[in-house]
C-alpha cells in the first residue's frame, strides 16, 4: 500500500514538472526516475510537498532538478572493443567522403566525443568531419566544451582504454592529445579538438533538431536505458530518419533493439547500420 502511494506521488511530481518547465520526464523508466527523485529529496532534505513547492516557484531549482535527474557517468573509450571496431570497420568506409556528419546524442561530459575525434585524427579524416554533440544537461555540456577531466582519478583507466582501442594498430601517443597536470589534477584535450565540436543543449525527448539532421554516424550510448520502451522506440525511429542510408548507429554495449527495428537496422558487431527497407510504412 505504502509503495503504490509512493509511485503515485512520483508520477504526479513529473506531471507538475512538465507543466511548469520545458522538461518532460514522464516517459523515463519508472524505477530510475524514482531513484533520482529520491536522491534529490535526500540531498536537499526536502519532502514531496516542499519539492513540489520549490519546483513551482523557483525556475533555478528546476534546472537543479534536471541536473540531478540526468546521469552523467561516461569515460574515455568506454568499451574499447567497440572503439576498435569503429576504428577498423566503420570509419574506413567513410574515408572517401567529402564530408562526414556525426551526432553524439546525450554526449554528457564529452569523453566519448573526444574518443571519436582521436580516431578520426588517427585516420587523417578529422578535417572532413562535422560534429554535433547534444545533451539535456547544461552543466555536463559546459564540462564537455572545456574537455577537462580529473587526472588522478581517470588517468590510468583512460590510458588503458586508449591502448586497447587501438589494438592491432600502431598506438598513437596519448600525450599528443591530452595535456596532463598531475598537480592541478587535470587532464585536458587539445584545444583544436574541443573547438572542432559544436556542443548544443537539446532534450532528446523533444523532436526537432537545432541543426541539419542527416548523419553518417549517430552515437547514443547508455542513454536509452533510462527511458521506457515507448520513448526508446520514438527516439530510435528518429535516429533512423536522421541517418543516411547505410549510416551507423552506435548504442551502449548492453542496449538492444526491439523486434520492429531489427528490420530497419542490420547489426554488425557492436554497431547498427541503417538498412534500405523502403517497403515499410511507418
Amino acid at each position: 500500500m505504502q509503495n503504490s502511494e509512493k509511485d503515485y506521488n512520483y508520477k504526479e511530481y513529473l506531471l507538475i514538472l512538465k507543466e511548469c518547465s520545458p522538461y518532460d520526464f514522464s516517459e523515463y523508466s519508472d524505477n530510475s526516475i524514482d531513484r533520482r527523485i529520491k536522491k534529490i529529496m535526500r540531498d536537499q532534505g526536502l519532502n514531496m510537498e516542499e519539492l513540489v513547492l520549490k519546483t513551482r516557484t523557483e525556475p533555478d531549482f528546476v534546472e537543479q532538478v534536471v541536473e540531478a535527474i540526468t546521469v552523467n557517468t561516461t569515460e574515455l573509450f568506454r568499451d574499447p572493443d567497440v572503439w576498435n571496431h569503429i576504428l577498423k570497420k566503420v570509419l574506413p568506409a567513410l574515408k572517401h567522403q567529402k564530408k562526414i556528419n556525426i551526432w553524439h546524442a546525450g554526449c554528457s561530459t564529452g569523453q566519448e566525443v573526444y574518443s571519436l575525434l582521436i580516431l578520426l585524427d588517427h585516420l587523417q579524416i578529422l578535417d572532413r568531419a562535422e560534429i554535433y554533440a547534444t545533451d539535456i544537461s547544461k552543466k555536463a555540456l559546459e564540462q564537455a566544451k572545456k574537455g577537462q577531466y580529473f587526472y588522478n582519478f581517470n588517468a590510468e583507466k583512460y590510458r588503458e582504454n586508449f591502448k586497447a582501442s587501438f589494438e592491432g594498430e600502431t598506438v598513437p601517443d596519448f600525450d599528443s592529445y591530452f595535456s596532463a597536470d598531475a598537480d592541478k589534477d587535470l587532464l585536458k584535450i587539445r584545444t583544436d579538438f574541443s573547438e572542432k565540436v559544436q556542443f548544443i543543449k537539446h532534450d532528446l525527448v523533444k523532436g526537432d533538431l537545432p541543426f541539419y539532421n542527416k548523419f553518417d554516424l549517430i552515437f547514443c550510448r547508455n542513454v536509452l536505458i533510462y527511458f521506457q520502451g515507448s520513448l526508446q522506440s520514438k527516439i530510435v525511429e528518429r535516429f533512423h530518419e536522421n541517418l543516411f542510408p547505410g549510416g551507423t548507429m552506435i548504442l551502449g554495449s548492453h542496449e538492444s533493439l526491439g523486434g520492429f527495428f531489427k528490420t530497419k537496422f542490420s547489426k554488425n558487431g557492436p554497431v547498427y547500420h541503417r538498412t534500405n527497407s523502403f517497403h515499410f510504412k511507418y
Partner: peptide
C-alpha cells in the same frame, strides 16, 4: 550484472541497467 553497469530487477520481471554513480 555486466561490468560497469548497475543491474536492477523490475516489477515486470525484466532487467534494467544503469550507469548511475
Amino acid at each position: 550484472a555486466p561490468a560497469n553497469y548497475h543491474l536492477f530487477v523490475e516489477l515486470d520481471g525484466t532487467v534494467a541497467l544503469s550507469t548511475e554513480e
